[in-house]
């Protein structure tokens, strides 16, 4: 049987510090994208002439539904002309994929090492 590991007992202050640490980490992660300001967002076409229902070239049924929703041509045009940009930056894609793969590889390897300790203590050395 492997020697039993006796863990340290954590103080109350230590428990509070650890709880706060993980919370701070979450908030930092939430705010970082704001600082980077890099996320794609739907962008409305600018400098276009004031739209009318005719210029939007909608069928009468579609126009009727917009009106029922409380939209005039100008408000509807803002949504209709709003487009997502799906241009892919290959370097950014590779970087992101690399980070996700590295994360899982590290985690599986580290977990496996820890798991062997658990099994060894539970079932004894093989």
């Amino acid at each position: 049987m492997a020697k039993e590991y006796i863990p340290e007992k954590q103080s109350g202050i230590g428990q509070i510090i650890d709880s706060i640490f993980i919370l701070v980490l979450v908030y930092v992660s939430l705010y970082i994208p704001l600082l980077m300001k890099a996320d794609a967002a739907a962008e409305a076409a600018a400098d276009a002439p004031k739209p009318t229902w005719e210029s939007l070239q909608l069928s009468p049924v579609v126009q009727e539904q917009w009106v029922k929703l409380g939209y005039d041509a100008e408000k509807a045009a803002a949504l209709i002309n709003s487009k997502f940009d799906y241009t892919i930056d290959p370097m950014m894609l590779l970087l992101t994929a690399g980070i996700i793969i590295a994360y899982f590889v590290f985690m599986l390897k580290a977990s496996d090492k820890e798991y062997r300790e658990v099994i060894s203590e539970k079932f004894g050395d093989k």
Binding site: D18, I22, S29, P33, M36, Y86, T96
Partner: peptide
């Protein structure tokens, strides 16, 4: 495609948390 920087930021959170667990928490 839509939230690339958020994706990286969240992965950063889990990577830092994993390192913290390995170094700091696992001893308990």
């Amino acid at each position: 495609l839509g939230y690339g920087s958020t994706l990286l930021s969240i992965m950063g959170f889990y990577i830092v948390a994993s390192i913290w667990f390995t170094i700091r928490r696992y001893k308990f």
